[in-house]
Amino acid sequence: MLKSANFKPSRNQLENMGVATAGSGFTEQPQVPDQLCTKCPGCGKTIFTSDMRANLWMCPSCGYHFKYPARKHLLKICDENSFEEWDTGLRSTDFLHFPGYAVKLKSARLNSRENESVISGKAAIEGEPCAIFAMDSRFMMGSMGSVVGEKITRLFERATEERLPVIGFTLSGGARMQEGTTSLMQMAKTSGAVKYHSDAGLLYITVLTNPTTGGVTASFAMEGDILLSEPGALIGFAGPRVIEQTMRQKLPKGFQSAEFLLEKGFLDGIVPRPEQRKVLAQLLRLHRKEA
C-alpha cells in the first residue's frame, strides 16, 4: 500500500538537525519550491503551483512536464490499491566516509520523505500485473548508489521468478559519486539482472523522464524492449555542460531532448502523462502470453 506521509520538515527543523538547507551552500533543492506560484520553464508563464500539481504536475498552459514525485507518479499509473512495495528496508550508508555524504543522505530523506531515490514493487495497470519502479529527483537527483542498484536488481530477479513484465520510470543524474567505484559496479549488476529477465522472454518497458543521464542511461534505462519517453525530457550519456566544454561550442536548442532522440532512432515513442496508463496497459496486453 502506498503511504503518504503528512510529515513535512520546516527549514528550522532541518537546520536544527544539522542539515544544510538552500541558501546555506546546499544546492540540491526540489525544482518546485513550496510556494504559491511557479514559473513554467516551458512557456515562461507564471502558474499556480496547485494548478500544476492537480494537472499531473504539468503546466496547465503549455503541458510542460515538471519532475513528478515517484510515489505520486506510481499512484497515477497503477490500479487503485494495487501497488505492493518491495524492499522498503534498504538504506544507503556512507561506507567510504565520503565528505558530506552522510549529511546529504539525511537531507535527501527529509526532502523527499523517501528512503532512497527509487521506489519499486508490484502492481496492476488496467488489471495487467507487472513489476514497476520509479525514480525520484528529490533524493540526490535520482543518483544510483548501492541501494538503487540492489533494488533494481532484486526487482528484475523477482520479476524473472514470478514471470512478470517490468515497467520502469527512469530519472537520474547518473552514478552516485559518494559511493565511488561501487556505484559504477551497479551499472553492471543491474544490466546482468535485466539480461536474465530478457533471456527469460519477459517484457521490459522504460519510460525515460527528465532528466535521464550518465550511468543510468548507460545501463538499465536504455535496456528496455520498448523505450518510451515523456515529452521534452533530457536524455543523454554526458550532460549538456560537459559536452559544451568538450566541444567548445554551444549545443543547438533541443539537443538530447526526447524529440531529438526519437528523430535519431533511439526511442519508440513519446507519451505524455495523461496517456501513459492507457499506452502501458495496451503494451502489456499485447505481450500477454495466453495460458
Binding site: 544490466s191 546482468g192 530478457s198 542511461t217 548507460a218 536504455m222 535496456e223 536524455i235 550519456f237 533511439f266
Partner: peptide, 12 residues
C-alpha cells in the same frame, strides 16, 4: 549515435 545505449548493450 547513442553512447549510453552502446555502453548499456555491452554490459548486458
Amino acid at each position: 549515435r547513442g553512447q549510453g545505449l552502446a555502453i548499456a548493450e555491452n554490459l548486458c
